[in-house]
Design a protein around this nucleic acid. Structure first.
Lengths: 210, 210, 210, 210
DNA sequence: CATGAATGAGATTTCATTCAT
DNA sequence: CATGAATGAAATCTCATTCAT
């Protein structure tokens, strides 16, 4: 038996958990199933994580880290490639985020429970929006995540972040229910997103910055 | 002991379930607790509903019916009271919907689960949007819920329905996390909603109707 | 609503119970399922039968009555049609009994439980064997069902009655397991039955009667 | 508490299940009772066996193995002790099998259920008959359990295996019902069995082998 | 790091039976 | 005759977590 182990099993667990949580939800996913899917002994999970809650917390941390890393490299890329059309930018961001589709749905679900300290969604939004702001090279220096202007933040979160998240997470079920073609739906979403959120963006920015 | 007969206990169950699902989520609410809260024998629940999933499905249907009823009466009211400002209208709708806050979060959560696609959220959106369209007395006669134009539907759902739903459901946690005052936040949301969704609405309508 | 009822529902219940008991066994068949299959209100079952045990007892009584009736008419028939080949006689008896296939399997099952007063199988055997004896017009007058010669009875029951019962009840599963054709299997069984049981029959009869 | 490790508790469960199923039947034995009898935590049963059906299947397999082992050692014994009378051989086999009496009745009962056709009885017969064939040192080399001649198989199963099984399982109830003495009944059965089945055996063998 | 075995508490679901109308 | 509603008890199965090795 070659020492395949170490960090390996921790990752296997995280991946399995990500998949299963997103597919069935946190509560409906048993630790047994995670162990089975990860091809790992159940007790291993409790070696790496204090308990089931700790596991989901680790997942959230991990996804936030990944998103941060991905976004900043994307930022660099967008700078080097120079001016692309807004549509292209939104599309590429959409594609980026779709990679986290599964875990994002878990993030949303947990945020909906409200009860506990499920602030992960907000922390994630903070990061994403911070990045977006940088991308747009806005001069707005009031962007402290602690207390931005209420209106601005409302705008970013409920008109920008939430629709995009929701689209990413629900597009499949949504297309299926309405018999839409996925590519058409994506195109439509980008169009709508630009028309509603991004167009207003300029306006808001102006408003805010004057 | 109750032997009250008929629909009564079915309703008691539905009410108890609505309260408990809203408060603790679907998975965290046991059938035992529902029975206890409803003051009904546990087996009664399985007499009226095939299983726990059937119960929540019935609940969704019932809630959707209630919302529909409430909205259409609101519609009538808005017609009789004549022209109110758009802001007032949105605010009243917001308040209306807030009554279902808890159960709506359950609706959203179930929709987020990948498997067994609970379509209740979409059915709810269909009804809500149908109402909204009537409220605006649009001349658009293509509003069949079966196959609306992709773009229009995308707009209504992801720029209108979802942000409003999300705001209703998340406002408390959101305000708490960012230390916002709730009234300010509501005001901000209404403002943003008008600016992004409703303003574009006219535009989309024009686009669509020409 | 025309008065379809009365005896009707009692029979519907008996038929449904017969089918379900034979398919799933007595214990694994719930009263609910019987009511559903019989298209009858569950409480009706408790109107017609004291309880579940009473229901199966009634079933047994009914089948024994039917078998008695059928056998004696068959007896008459066989007398009028005169001499048929032994094979034909066995075959016709097989076909006769196959009509009770389902209930016979229940009879067997209950007899296997041993515990309770499941003497129905033996009572049924008594009837069937008494008839057989008459059919063969044997001169044996010692055929009191109470205390026949041990050996003779052993022979009739374990070499005659049981194999035939078992074949009737198990032939389908048996053919399926061994990939036998049903007609071939029936033919083979009749052949074997004659060769082993009936041939010895003459011998035993001789032995006994001298 | 036991924490005895490994196979031990699995066996304890199997033994408890064998006893209880035999005594009360499959359906009338609750998993709780098995756990209690086995002095094992209830969840342990579901750790070792997928569900109750899986448990009984494992039990059948285990019993069949035991029977096989016992028969082949009996085979060896019979060879070393040289020629015993046929009656003695049958008697000893009868006694052997009587050890599994209870569980065999469960085997039969399950085989009688129309649905989910448990094939355990047939598998058991296959083994038993294979052994019997060896005992008789027949020259028949066509004894593949997969596709034996229909007639031969019918003979072995319905004239040999089934009567013997049934006698083992039912003898007590049968003797009680007819007020037979058990030893007399056993004697009678052996006699009948030889006269009907074994005598024909030679005949069949001849027939088959020419 | 890794694993098989173990456990107490509790979840969902089913059952035979009864009652009021 | 017929029915919908009701119930207490119990059955099957699952869960998160721990421990000894």
């Amino acid at each position: 038996m070659p020492r395949t182990g170490g960090e390996k099993s921790r990752l296997k667990i995280l991946h399995a958990a990500e998949y299963l949580f997103s597919e069935y939800g946190f509560d409906a996913t048993s630790v047994d199933k995670i162990a089975e899917k990860a091809n790992v002994n159940k007790a291993m999970i409790y070696y790496h994580f204090k308990n089931k809650d700790d596991l989901i917390a680790a997942l959230f941390t991990s996804v936030i880290e990944q998103i941060t890393a991905a976004s900043s490299s994307a930022l660099v890329a967008s700078r080097t490639t120079g001016e692309a059309s807004i549509a292209k930018k939104v599309e590429s961001e959409l594609i980026q985020m779709t990679r986290w589709k599964k875990i994002l749905s878990v993030l949303l679900m947990e945020a909906l429970k409200g009860k506990k300290s499920s602030t992960a969604l907000f922390r994630c939004a903070d990061l994403a929006l911070a990045n977006e702001r940088e991308t747009q090279q806005s001069d707005d220096h009031t962007s402290s995540p602690i207390a931005p202007s209420v209106r601005n933040h409302t705008f970013e979160f409920f008109s920008g972040f939430i629709p995009m998240m929701t689209f990413i997470v629900m597009q499949d079920a949504w297309c299926k229910y309405y018999h839409f073609e996925k590519s058409k739906a994506t195109e439509a979403f980008i169009d709508v997103f630009i028309e509603t959120h991004l167009r207003a963006h300029r306006q808001f920015d102006t408003t805010t910055n004057i």
